[in-house]
Computed example of a mutant assay.
Amino acid sequence: MTTVTPAPQALLLRVGEARFLLPLDRVERLYPMVHLPPGPPRVHLRGETLPVHDPRAAWGQPPGVPHASQRLVLVRSPEREAWWVDEAGPVVDVTPHGPAVLDGQVVSVLW
């Protein structure tokens, strides 16, 4: 009997105009945006204080201002941290270790 390995899945994230995919095995949980104190952004989630990573600079976007419609994605990267994103979802199937094509556009997968 042949075993079929299911395609890996990834969560679609948007920061400003940039869209990228994060493999689900790196995503622990999604949270609604919370108030971020001044200084290096940190957040207290489920008894642990974690750094908040704003990926806007990596995607050539200007710094953002926290808004209730945004999300925090708890990520293992390899350390645990919260990523501040504008939108999260949906989950899509991806090809291992390559980019994905969504709506006719190539989207990076952050393996």
Rank of each mutant, 00 (worst) to 15 (best):
M1E: 14
T2K: 14
V4H: 11
T5N: 08
T5V: 12
P6D: 13
P6F: 12
A7Q: 14
Q9R: 10
A10W: 02
L11K: 02
L11Q: 09
R14Y: 01
V15N: 01
A18W: 04
A18N: 00
A18I: 01
F20W: 14
L21E: 05
L22I: 08
P23E: 07
D25L: 08
D25F: 06
R26C: 04
E28Y: 09
E28D: 04
E28S: 03
L30R: 09
L30P: 06
P32Y: 06
P32N: 12
P32V: 03
P32F: 08
M33Q: 15
M33G: 10
V34E: 15
L36T: 13
L36N: 12
L36G: 10
L36Y: 11
P37K: 10
P38W: 05
P38A: 10
P41F: 10
R42W: 09
V43S: 05
H44E: 13
L45W: 06
G47K: 11
T49C: 03
L50M: 15
P51W: 05
P51V: 05
P51D: 09
V52M: 07
H53M: 04
H53W: 12
H53P: 03
D54I: 05
R56C: 04
A57N: 12
A58K: 12
A58T: 15
A58M: 12
G60T: 07
Q61N: 06
P62M: 11
G64L: 05
V65Y: 03
V65F: 02
P66T: 03
P66V: 05
A68R: 13
S69A: 01
R71S: 01
L72P: 01
L72G: 06
V73H: 04
L74F: 06
L74D: 02
R76V: 08
R76Y: 15
S77K: 04
S77H: 15
P78V: 11
E79G: 09
E79T: 07
E81T: 08
A82Y: 02
W84F: 13
E87T: 09
G89R: 02
P90D: 08
V91Y: 03
V92R: 00
D93C: 14
V94Q: 02
P96S: 01
H97E: 01
G98E: 09
G98P: 00
L102Y: 00
D103K: 10
G104R: 10
V106I: 03
V107T: 09
S108V: 03
S108L: 11
V109M: 07
L110R: 11
W111C: 00
W111P: 00
